[in-house]
Design a protein around this nucleic acid. Sequence first.
DNA 1: GCCCGGTGTCGAATCGATTCCGCGAATCGG
DNA 2: CCGATTCGCGGAATCGATTCGACACCGGGC
Lengths: 348, 348
Amino acid sequence: MNIGEIARRAGVSRSTVSYTLSGKRPVSDATRKRIQDVIDELGYRPNAAARALKEGRTRTIGLVIPPASRRLTHMQLGFVASVVEAAARADLDVLLSPSGGDHDRSFERLLSGGRVDGVILMEIRLEDSRVRRLQNAKLPFVGIGHTARAHEMCWIDVDYTTVINRCVHHLADLGHTRIALVNRSVELMATGYGPGHRARDGFVAALAQRGIQGVDLECGDDAAAGLECVTRLLQDHPDVTAVATINEAALPGIQRGLEEAGLAVPRDFSITGVVGRTWAEEFRPPLTAADVPADDIGTQAMDLLLERMVDPATPLRNILLAPPVSLRGSTGPVRSARPDETVRRTPS
Amino acid sequence: MNIGEIARRAGVSRSTVSYTLSGKRPVSDATRKRIQDVIDELGYRPNAAARALKEGRTRTIGLVIPPASRRLTHMQLGFVASVVEAAARADLDVLLSPSGGDHDRSFERLLSGGRVDGVILMEIRLEDSRVRRLQNAKLPFVGIGHTARAHEMCWIDVDYTTVINRCVHHLADLGHTRIALVNRSVELMATGYGPGHRARDGFVAALAQRGIQGVDLECGDDAAAGLECVTRLLQDHPDVTAVATINEAALPGIQRGLEEAGLAVPRDFSITGVVGRTWAEEFRPPLTAADVPADDIGTQAMDLLLERMVDPATPLRNILLAPPVSLRGSTGPVRSARPDETVRRTPS
DNA sequence: GCCCGGTGTCGAATCGATTCCGCGAATCGG
DNA sequence: CCGATTCGCGGAATCGATTCGACACCGGGC
């Protein structure tokens, strides 16, 4: 069933059918109605490929997500969900591409052959060759995250430096003088994962500003790793009384590790960090944290992309969000001595 | 840059370029090399829309996921990830469509206009009009989940009836005689969500088989709801000593609720159910549960779909998985009396 | 009565790739 | 040495929709 079939049944030419659909030329009411009736009756929809071929655009965007092997964090899931929703509102389809490296087949397919009109890129590294590939392909794209050269692309990102800095200051205000940063996984850090490195920068800066000491830890993105990480921390650095983290996935493990060590939050130990908004509330006790508005970010990324798709010459905008630390129940004043501190110190 | 450009630069006709690419006709080594060099130099890729138009297929599949508003469970996330990965292996793109109801714009766009060659449908209800729509559209499709009429479509699903049945038997074997089922949300149940209803059937059947009593609860899909649900349960039914659940997302809340009530797992209370494989291990104590191999399911769904895409006349296969209950640490023998049982009974 | 502008419709070119048909040249057997 | 076969390649039609130029028709103004 194609436009010719509709035209034949309505007794008009194909162009007239096309014009009734697009409204780009006037069509008399009588003809329009006749055509519309046939269309409704047969449930005709113009073929997407033919339209894309002629118009030179596909009404589809690409969403590049972390590879399937790596489990998405809640925050990333929030990005995906809101991007998809925002795209649907703009009547755009979303093509998914799980891509880690650069010479990824899936990523190449996305760029080549004009499959998409624009791309949203997630999990960007400080040096990310995909950015160059997208620039060369002359495809409008927007990053959720950004590379080391901020102005080379259009993006929206969380200001991890500032936010972790604030977390540390908050902890320091409460009297904590030994603070750990639970960062993302070794692998992610090794590939130059932006948020991880920026969080570390903010952490180091805040420590210096307050003249206190800290421990900088890398931790896998799951509960088991969090448990192992915090257990090691308590053993190696028994004087640490608080952690800040950007590793959502490790949080349940961190909590469990503290529990197993007999430490109550926030009485004996404080936790804070940066997590997706809904997550902070689910925590017990509710997490004092910088709440990342994942839904907003996805929606805004889509808005930025739409802007560039309409006019690729739009100046490259950058949006940096530094959500304030929302005070909840997971941080408290430091205790001068932990209940069983002497016991713990013995083995070390 | 199109195939004509390549042909001109290589000094051959467009058809010869096409044949070198597809290999459907012999091309002399000299010509092939000349053409290949030009292609490599310019980085040419055939236009997807033009190819789709001519070939009549798009090399793209649609993946219908729950609407963005509803957060995906870990299991569903596993499905999505593995489907995307499997599709990438088969050199297929994945178009995402968040669709709850039937007259969803996003879903309609997927079906109409030949945008996809096949569809994988998630979160299927017992009566699901999307199935009819797909059948009418003559699109190959596979469900992860199935409707009330098992043979009307091709699907792969977890046998929730059997699995929850086994869970209850396992608990009964341990001496539990008052067991609760923590099901999915009221809304989901109201719309006829398959797994929820089938789990309930298995639960009711097992209770009858063992001559014991149970409580059937609906619970929202998040930790807060789980907490609220288990708190209510302990209050209203203080004699319940174990729960079985299909509600992954509520598990952290359930656990927290038990903790707050001073009940240790598995000493005072047993938990079991059906969850994604990786989840069971992350639990503390590790969850005795029927482990759903989410990755396998996604991959197998993709295999089923590929089968139907190659030959739509393939008989409709159904795959029902009933993973055995893996014994871990969250279930144990019932205690004749809970430590503080008399205390708890007083207020009721 | 003729011309002119506007309205509504149609025919045909176009987008980029695939593929059938057929032509010329090289190859082989008799 | 000639005719038949094979091989390599080019020409042209095709997929389904959009859109430009053109044309017929109609009413109004001169």
